[in-house]
């Protein structure tokens, strides 16, 4: 089992049907892209498929998200990056962070989804809005 930094949001998900209106864009960003501290060992494809399903990104009737990066850093680190309200929307972390890049395998388009996982150490570029990250633009 993978530790989730957002037990509360997961709990809400289990009680309510997924709805756009329930979640802010920041919460959606956390749900899709943050997993701190992340898997203990090198992540396998199962890490990606399990977490993407638990975070309600993939599921029955939904297309498999082809590519998804999980950042293994505390949310505070990315919040700090977005803290200065003035400045460009796209901002890159000064230091490289632990990330897992998930890539769907050729065999899956709809649920269930199989992935290949690659653990990397990369800088992360996010888009900020009102002092919070709302979009993971790329890793470099």
């Amino acid at each position: 089992y993978f530790c989730s930094p957002f037990p509360i949001s997961l709990l809400i998900f289990t009680l309510l049907p997924p709805s756009h209106l329930t979640f802010t864009r920041y919460e959606k960003f956390l749900r899709q892209h943050l997993d701190h501290p992340g898997p203990a060992g090198p992540p396998g494809g199962r890490y990606c498929s399990t977490l993407l399903q638990r975070r309600r990104v993939n599921g029955p009737g939904r297309p498999c998200k082809p590519v998804n990066t999980f950042v293994h850093a505390p949310a505070a680190e990315l919040l700090a990056l977005c803290a200065p309200r003035h400045g460009p929307a796209l901002r890159t972390t000064a230091a490289a962070l632990d990330v897992t890049a998930c890539r769907v395998t050729g065999g899956s388009v709809y649920h269930p989804c199989a992935y290949r996982a690659a653990r990397r150490h990369q800088r992360v570029e996010v888009a900020c809005e009102d002092g919070r990250p709302v979009h993971l633009s790329r890793t470099l």
Partner: peptide, 16 residues
């Protein structure tokens, strides 16, 4: 399907 596309908060409201 619009995974990982960045748009503004106004656009987000429009889509919803």
């Amino acid at each position: 399907i619009l995974y990982d596309i960045f748009w503004s908060a106004e656009m987000d409201d429009e889509l919803r």
